[in-house]
Simulated scan of single mutants.
Amino acid sequence: MDSDLAEQSCGRGVSGATITFVLRIFFGTDDLDRIRVAERPDMSMELSLSVHGLVSGRCDPRFLDWRNRLRASWNPRTALLFDLYTPTAIPEFLAVRRDPGATESATAEAPPEPLRDHLRSVGGVRQLSAFARGVAAGDQRARKLLGNVTADYQTRAIDPYRRQIETIVTTEHGRRRRITEPDQVLGSLHPALSWRRPVLSFPLAGGCRHDIRLDGRGLLLQPCVFGPRRPVIARFEDPRQQPVLLYPARIGGPLQPEVEPTPSRTLTALLGHTRAAALEAIAAHGPCSTKDLAAVLDISTASASEHATVLAESGLTSKDRTGRTVTHRPTPLGRALLAGRVPEAE
């Protein structure tokens, strides 16, 4: 979001993330002990923030190449996503998964209540489009279209930059991890933030104020690549959720796409996209734990365990257990399948 617009407004969505900089966050003693810096990027939030940058017309030179490449492959239907935004609120129900097909399903099947609440807040700012009204009403065609458009945008705007985004965020995590004292972490997080125990504040003009009390929930500090140059608060309205403070990670230079190797069509047809990707990940990173496999594939640990079990039962990988940790490695048959050949009989 353009910083001038941010300072002029302090609106908030009912359930979406709120882009507001006139804010005070009150910490209790337990909250300071529950501060943590995210180890990996939140790709769903990266996608949502990247769309918001397009909606707001933010001209950040770091993203010039990214915007030009996106413009060259622009799908006009992507503009439907713009109907879900206001200058101060972004949707949190656009789900990104490693497999675009899973992204499509997860977004189309998002829980209806937060989706309706967010679009109700959008409707309070401007008239909803026919597409947004259909999504809010739970129309299956509109929901399916939402999933399809989100998945298509992911393949153009997020997937080619995944590795660079992950490197930027993990580097930021390592930098912050070396600072052990909560006061030092909060005090050095961003120039726009002011930390005076027990209050973290966004000191801005305009007279608008919003207070958040963590009440033992702690705070997740999430470095972001596509976020605005100032922090954003999200997921704070539900008392059962840990609030997230998204802040801009250091980006050394412009984003550059990297073509990651993808499973062959034959292998994908044989195993399915996610399972083929799991076999390739185990071959590339193995021996790797189930948790590591889940992180690489951007899926749950339970799903990673299920895919790894099927691969092991098929003789494509092997499993070793040390205590509670299970590690996976490719078998000769698995490597041969990845290489597109059949191993010789012994």
Rank of each mutant, 00 (worst) to 15 (best):
177 R>I: 11
163 R>C: 12
183 D>E: 09
219 L>M: 11
160 P>T: 10
231 P>K: 02
220 L>V: 14
257 P>I: 11
244 V>N: 00
223 P>E: 04
200 L>G: 00
277 A>S: 04
171 T>G: 07
233 I>W: 01
220 L>K: 07
154 Q>V: 15
200 L>Y: 11
229 R>P: 00
208 C>E: 04
262 T>A: 13
187 G>D: 07
231 P>A: 13
266 T>C: 03
210 H>V: 15
182 P>N: 11
262 T>R: 07
259 V>E: 06
142 A>I: 08
227 G>C: 05
206 G>M: 08
269 A>I: 08
277 A>I: 06
252 G>Y: 08
245 L>K: 03
282 I>A: 00
173 H>I: 13
263 P>D: 04
201 S>C: 14
170 T>V: 11
240 R>F: 12
211 D>C: 14
196 R>W: 06
207 G>T: 14
248 P>V: 15
178 R>N: 05
234 A>N: 01
153 Y>C: 09
267 L>S: 01
191 P>L: 15
282 I>D: 00
154 Q>T: 15
167 T>M: 14
166 E>C: 14
265 R>N: 06
266 T>Q: 05
268 T>Q: 03
158 I>K: 00
239 P>M: 07
185 V>C: 06
162 R>A: 12
282 I>P: 01
155 T>A: 14
178 R>C: 06
180 T>P: 03
164 Q>C: 08
197 R>S: 11
211 D>P: 04
173 H>G: 09
157 A>M: 09
184 Q>V: 15
159 D>H: 06
141 R>S: 07
215 D>N: 13
205 A>F: 11
186 L>H: 00
251 I>H: 03
280 E>N: 05
246 L>F: 10
275 R>K: 14
189 L>E: 05
145 L>M: 13
187 G>F: 04
249 A>W: 06
146 L>A: 06
253 G>C: 05
152 D>P: 01
163 R>D: 09
190 H>L: 12
176 R>K: 08
244 V>G: 00
266 T>R: 10
